[in-house]
Design a protein around this nucleic acid. Sequence first.
DNA 1: CCCTATTCGTCGGGCCGCTCAACAAATTAG
DNA 2: CTAATTTGTTGAGCGGCCCGACGAATAGGG
Lengths: 404, 404
Amino acid sequence: MRGLGDDVGACHYDRVASTSASAGALLRHVRTGRARSRADLVALTGASRNTVSARVDQLIAARLLEEGGRGGSTGGRPPTLLQFNSRAGCVLAVDLGASSVDVAVTDLSAQILATVGHPIDIADGPEVVLAEVDQLAQKVLAEAGLTPADVCAVGVGVPGPVEFSTGRPSYPPIMPGWHDYPVPSAFGRYGCPVYVDNDVNVMALGEIGVAGSEQDLLVVKVGTGIGCGVIVEGRVYRGAQGSAGDIGHIYVGQPDGRTVGCRCGQENCLEAIAGGQALLRDARAAGLPVRTVRDVVQLAAQGDGAALELVRDAGRTIGTVLAALVNFFNPHRIVMTGGVARAGVPLLAGIREAVYQRSMPLAARTLEISVSEAPDLSGRVGAARMAIEEFLAEDSVAVLASER
Amino acid sequence: MRGLGDDVGACHYDRVASTSASAGALLRHVRTGRARSRADLVALTGASRNTVSARVDQLIAARLLEEGGRGGSTGGRPPTLLQFNSRAGCVLAVDLGASSVDVAVTDLSAQILATVGHPIDIADGPEVVLAEVDQLAQKVLAEAGLTPADVCAVGVGVPGPVEFSTGRPSYPPIMPGWHDYPVPSAFGRYGCPVYVDNDVNVMALGEIGVAGSEQDLLVVKVGTGIGCGVIVEGRVYRGAQGSAGDIGHIYVGQPDGRTVGCRCGQENCLEAIAGGQALLRDARAAGLPVRTVRDVVQLAAQGDGAALELVRDAGRTIGTVLAALVNFFNPHRIVMTGGVARAGVPLLAGIREAVYQRSMPLAARTLEISVSEAPDLSGRVGAARMAIEEFLAEDSVAVLASER
DNA sequence: CCCTATTCGTCGGGCCGCTCAACAAATTAG
DNA sequence: CTAATTTGTTGAGCGGCCCGACGAATAGGG
């Protein structure tokens, strides 16, 4: 059918409409609110009513969907409304930090049903730490009135690089003894898939929104160090060695020519100048009565002038790096999270100042820079969402249906 | 089938094997050399012999594949070898620059059959320029002994942002009068799909290799300005507004505190310090006998000390920016192209020096930094490859088969 | 030289999934 | 109360794909 001329300049544009009609895709449409009835699903996927009906029946049999009354008529038979049953199962979410661990059980909407935190030392090694995690998990499950058999998936965020496909940390700098340890093996009792990833990637997934909206997104975590989760078209981008997003050690030139050493051995790394530890150091040097990074952030939140200025300065420094990344990556959004992000407004102000000054207007104009609503929770929620998305994307229908 | 424990930690790893067995996928396997017979295709795709045979028959009918003798036996009947018939059609490749345009006809392996260049002024607007392109296209076609009916697809690279799906430039800074002009309409006579993209993206596609190997890649073009094509998992990454890779205006702090104005109105942009124009300016300031950027590059290639040092310095500056991007993006490879890249070794040396000094060792260790083999051709070859890949990925089988 | 084992490609039967068309159900408009 | 409209379900049919079986072409052994 050449030569008609109607396909001139037509490029693969139809991909928008030709969405898959797999069970997972249908479920996602309902979960994200894009569809509320079988008819909506037909319109969205382009599949036949028959196909959609069959799939929906499967999903209902797996208890992942429920029928919920009738919707408003538009001049004909009213549709039977569908809704996601977020209580069809639960997931375990583990947010492993350098000095503490948080464990939560959530439903399939990542709503936390119960959660516990506990101080740990990640350097105690995987056996000790994961034994503790196991204890905590049993505790939260009991608290939520659930049993190990109810767990559909486990999501774990760890503070270091991970080979995602195997769930093994790979030469993590701050996790001695964890290299190549099969983290999933610690959750064998649940007999379900275990997904392990870098904490920053996990948080990034949490910030996408359950929609899995196909966005390009940066999630910048400013805690003790500084890291960045990269989302390309709704999926985590990892790069060649899985170290993408490692922006903490980007070199930052200082206007006054001053030099700051970093724990990595280099000088003038971003996190050595604007990370949590740097903030604490500078605050102490300025004579502020602070013992931890948290104290500095709190002081700033209370309106202390010196603390505010320190946070704002850190924001400016981070902003200069982000400005370059905005030009290069042109994201839809940037979300700040991590301990220092709790400072909120002053940090954002510094970042925005630098970004809007130094990025190309086209890329910066519609760029949204915000702070995560609950920086403390984003690790757990992200881990839960990672587990949920991965689980529901697979043949979860079969799994849940075979269980009855 | 829960509770067996055998899926613990098992994540979607099977995607590697579960490759699609569509005609396009089979063709790709043969084109990339991964498969040389039907049996290879069966092993690669996991599809049944039957299915593969049917698809291959279609491809042979469309003349995209040919049977070529028998391969060596491994103890049984020897396989009938398959080979890609790169002469099943041809594509037009157009590399539009600010002051010149190159047009080429290539076969389906992006081998140039004939090519012509011509000086233009892009500011003359689309009608004038594209009329000239049309002339050139007819010339190269005639030279190669082909007719418009033989053209399967057209690929065009333009020096500015383009909305890929429609082939319309969008507010291109250096192409006055081109905004929203439907470039594909100029090629209506060929009655085939026309693919238009930013020249840097086009070059990036050219550097992937015909394989479409799923790599993460940066292609940095250093010409008058500096731009960067971003390849994520083998596909062009464009970002929110399609301006991803716009690294020419990243702010670069100067150690000596000196300030350089950029044509964009900002100060100390990368391209104002290390771009082709900057190189020319600095060379003149140093008293070198040069009239164009090309002269500077040539001088360096001839071993002129001052020119070499200038190029190397530009490399270092570009390297400092790339070092940050390497940490963030963690690419497998970086390929340099564009006019200044012809300088080769000294540019690379400067870049490597800065990158290896300032990037994280993990990301830098296996990073490959190289210069395109033919910086002058990469625009044309890239445009051709873009057209070929897009064309062959679609239902080209049906198109070619229906033609007989 | 013949026979067997092995590998490659093709042919027919059958299953699965999807679409199309027709029909039942539930509502609005007139 | 009837016609029109929209929704969901049921049955028929079609195409794609896999499975098993068979012919083809070679290597190796007696």
